[in-house]
């Protein structure tokens, strides 16, 4: 077994746990970036034999994007929005961490059931599923728009690792398409957050529901 790759998998899961519990936005952003970088290194390790040049180049691009560009964008969005610098979760820390653990148990069970090819690295499927779930957790239980974007990024990390499990040799096809989607999404969200915060002085998604018609009608105003 590839112990170093397994350690990285554990590290990714630990980052999931940390993401579920960190209170500050900036460390959240850093954690997501770190996870992206670590996930980017993974295919180089999971591969048999010496890596191809193409794979190395591809990994380098991914690491640069996830480790530098995205965090920079997010930090900018965070600074410009002028919002409070913490995450404002809807559920408590213990609940988050227990949910995350439960998700990991569920995904390890699921991983043992899925008919997938042998990857050579244990736990890669459960880890990817758990990462995807953590992304959903971030999206559903945090109030800020910026954490929603972070959630999408975490999901993307998870899908990337999952793709790795499916196509150890050829992850690029799937990956490139997804990456492009997310890249666009981040841009759009970045712009949206920037504008929303200018309009409303905050980026609380709860306030976005103010925009809908029915809410106003309900209040009778």
């Amino acid at each position: 077994m590839n112990t170093f790759a397994e350690l990285i998998i554990v590290f990714i899961i630990l980052i999931d746990l940390a993401l579920a519990v960190t209170g500050s936005l900036s460390s959240c952003i850093k954690l997501v970036a770190l996870q992206g970088v670590v996930a980017g290194i993974l295919p180089l390790l999971a591969m048999h034999g010496s890596p191809h040049f193409r794979a190395v180049a591809f990994a380098a691009v991914i690491i640069a994007l996830k480790g530098a560009v995205f965090p920079w964008l997010m930090m900018r969005a965070r600074d410009r929005s002028g919002a409070r610098k913490d995450v404002e979760p809807l559920i408590s820390y213990p609940a988050s961490i227990l949910l995350c653990l439960g998700a990991f148990i569920a995904s390890s069970w699921l991983g043992s059931r899925l008919p997938l090819p042998e990857t050579g690295v244990a736990w890669i499927v459960p880890a990817s599923l758990a990462t995807i779930f953590t992304g959903f957790l971030l999206i559903t239980t945090r109030t800020k728009a910026i954490t929603q974007v972070l959630g999408y990024l975490v999901i993307e990390n998870g899908i990337y690792i999952f793709g790795l499990a499916l196509f150890v040799e050829q992850p690029m096809m799937v990956e490139l398409a997804i990456l492009l989607d997310v890249f666009v999404a981040v841009f759009v969200m970045g712009i949206a957050i920037f504008h929303i915060s200018r309009e409303f002085d905050h980026i609380d998604t709860a306030e976005l529901s103010e925009l809908s018609d029915w809410r106003r009608g309900e209040d009778g105003r």
């Binding site: 519990v21 213990p94 990991f104 736990w123």
Partner: peptide, 22 residues
């Protein structure tokens, strides 16, 4: 402080899950 201790719990639980699934 309980959060820190729950983190330790999570570490142990993770280790156990890893071990069970090996």
């Amino acid at each position: 402080v309980p959060y820190m201790l729950i983190t330790a719990f999570a570490f142990s639980a993770l280790a156990l899950i890893f071990q069970m699934g090996r």
